[in-house]
Every structure is written in C-alpha cells, then in structure tokens.
Design a binder for these strands. Sequence first.
DNA 1: GGCCCTATTATTAGTGT
DNA 2: TACACTAATAATAGGGC
Lengths: 202, 202
Amino acid sequence: MASMSKTKKPSQGRRKIEIKKIEVKNHQQVTFSKRRVGLFNKASELCVLCGAEIAIICFSQAGKVFSFGHPSTDSVIERYINGGLYLDPVNNDNNPLFIQFKQKFRELEALKQAEIGKAKGSSGQQVNDCDNHFWWDESIEDMGLQDLEQFMVSLEGLVKNVDLKAEEMILENSSSLQLSGVGPSGGQDCFPCGSVGEFHLC
Amino acid sequence: MASMSKTKKPSQGRRKIEIKKIEVKNHQQVTFSKRRVGLFNKASELCVLCGAEIAIICFSQAGKVFSFGHPSTDSVIERYINGGLYLDPVNNDNNPLFIQFKQKFRELEALKQAEIGKAKGSSGQQVNDCDNHFWWDESIEDMGLQDLEQFMVSLEGLVKNVDLKAEEMILENSSSLQLSGVGPSGGQDCFPCGSVGEFHLC
DNA sequence: GGCCCTATTATTAGTGT
DNA sequence: TACACTAATAATAGGGC
C-alpha cells in the first residue's frame, strides 16, 4: 500500500508517468536515452515491415543531435524537400516566367507608388532588416504588398545572379565546375543497429 | 451494448509477428498506419518529457509522405542541415549571394508548407536526383550546372507563386486584401495531435 | 480510419558492477 | 557516471469488425 516505510525498497517496476517535462536532469537524460533508442527501433521496424523510408532527426535538450535514417537520413530529407516543393515538370520554361515576373514586379511597384506616393527606398540587395520579425518566414499568402515587393526585389537579384552564373558556366562549358561535396569535418559516431537504418549520433 | 453472450470470438489478442516485410498489402497498410501514429506519438512524448526537438519524415511504400516535427519539421531539418554541414564561416556569412541563398531556402521552406496545404489535388511528385550533397547549402558560386538547373526549377516554382499572389493582389487593388482561405483545396488531412508537435500528411 | 480485446513490448525504477 | 539486469506494469499494436 502506501506506506512501505523504511526497511526495503522492492523494485516497483514500471510506473505510470505524466507526459510533462522531466525536471530532474539525471532522470531526464536516462529517459531520453532509452526512449530515443526505442523510437529509432520502432522506426526501423516500420521500415522493414512496410517498406517505408524514414528519417528522424533528434536534438537533445543539450543540443546533441541524433539521427536515424533508412535508407539514409540525408536521402530521405532530400526526397522530402524536393518532393514537397511543388515542382511542376510539365510546364516549366524559364524565360516566359522570368519575363512575367519582371513585369509583375513593375506593376507592383507602380501600384505601390500610386498608393503610397513615394518610393520606399528599398535597394536591390535586401537582406534582412527586422530583428524581431523575419519576413521570409511568412508564407507568401501572408505577405502584404510591401513584403511581397521586397521579396520580389530579392528574388530578382537572385535570379539575376543565377542567370549570370549559368551563362558563365555554359560558356565555359564544363571542366571548371566542381561539385565537390563538403568534406566531413567533425568526428561522427555512427553505430550500427541490429536492424535496418542508420543511427547517427553527433 | 456489447452482448457478451456465448458466441464471443476469442480475440487472440496481440500476436507476435516477425519483423520482415509484410507482403499482404492490406495488412501492411493497416500496420503502417498504426505504427506510424505510434511512432509519432512516441516522438511527441519524447519532446515533452525531455525537451527534445525532433523531426520525422516518413514515406510510405506508395510514396506518400508523412511528417512530424517539434517545434516544426522544417525548423529541425534546417537546424540539422546547418549544424551538420560545414558552412565555411569565414566569408560566406558576409557573402551577399550566400545570404540571399539562405533566405531563398527559408522562403522555399515556407512556401512548401503553404503548397503542401494547398495543392492537395496533385499528388505524384517525385524528383529522383539524389547526390550526396545538399544543393541548397552551397553558394551559387560553387554550384555546378546541374545544381543551377535544379535551383532554377525551384526558383520557377517560387516565382510562379509570387506571381499568382501578386496578380491576385493587384486585381483586388490592394484595398482590402485579407487572405483568409485563399486555397480552393478541399479538406485538409492535417490532424492535430493531442500533444506537442505538428503532424503532416500529404 | 475507429473500436474492442488481449498478448506482446516498452519502459520505469531500483540494484548491482 | 554510465551501463546491465530485473521486476513489474503501462502502453502498443495485431486481428476482427
């Protein structure tokens, strides 16, 4: 019952715990380790059982990063980013879009000037300006006109650079392009698990 | 009212299964669903209990993508990429191109989220070009032709959206533009979980 | 996808090394 | 400090509907 006072401490076995932040640091770390392994194992099983591809990135509170991936963390992330990106391979031709883009930009600018009456003085290489608010973290849907315009300015500069670079490379035609991936710089601890997937701990 | 009369089917309870690919498709899908939810819940608990930040990306065999993230899938991925990859801190931080590039990445991420919610009708998107590097982490200067191409394609998607939004705003004459439910998409399959983290299903 | 019924598993807490 | 083992049980997930 409630009082098993002094004499002995029989193993009480697993007990129900509330799902809230564990404050006792030591306890938290133990739980983190155990549950992280459990999570990765579950993911591994899911991969095997169902032919899934899974990546898990896990930062501990202390900032350590652990990752799981099958077939690899990076490939899954890459697939995620590319796949979610709304690539429409059907109708993508560069030039018309860029022409439209520039035209829209001019229209926007004209509209803005008509409204406000004066230029806001944004220059072409807008970077970031607000400390407490990053405008690029909003989706376009949430952008106001001015935000949109700034966004376009940035985009235009970017497009220009990409364009220049592409042209340059096409002219030089191969040879000087190096795609060397960045080399590993930190020691990585990669331990194999019994099953599918890679477990990383950095 | 559960009539627990005579012909009760003695559910044999949970049964042990071998961890190997489930061939029966129907069975596999059921298992996938259950275990995926279980996995996400475990991750959620781990976040709460231990103050962890976790992202999970999960592709079903059919190519559907599901994701979990706390505080958000993308923020964790970004943190992973930035932390795990070796941005040359020497000059890149002051390189306008690089800064723009990083901005671009964030914008794309934000956009992607918007698109995931909106463009629900078109499903099959796949891009199968997986190298071992992250194209978005290189500055434009270091990009190869193929990277530039990929970058352009992404840019086009972005431009297209900016374009649409701009048009929309111009048409509405910027008087009372409040976005609201701009998307003509149908029901969303994003279900809130009881606990921390976002669950996405596309 | 959800519910029910259970058998199987994961994980907690304590102890020992 | 960190792991290995144990007991005890909370929670997951398999099979049917």
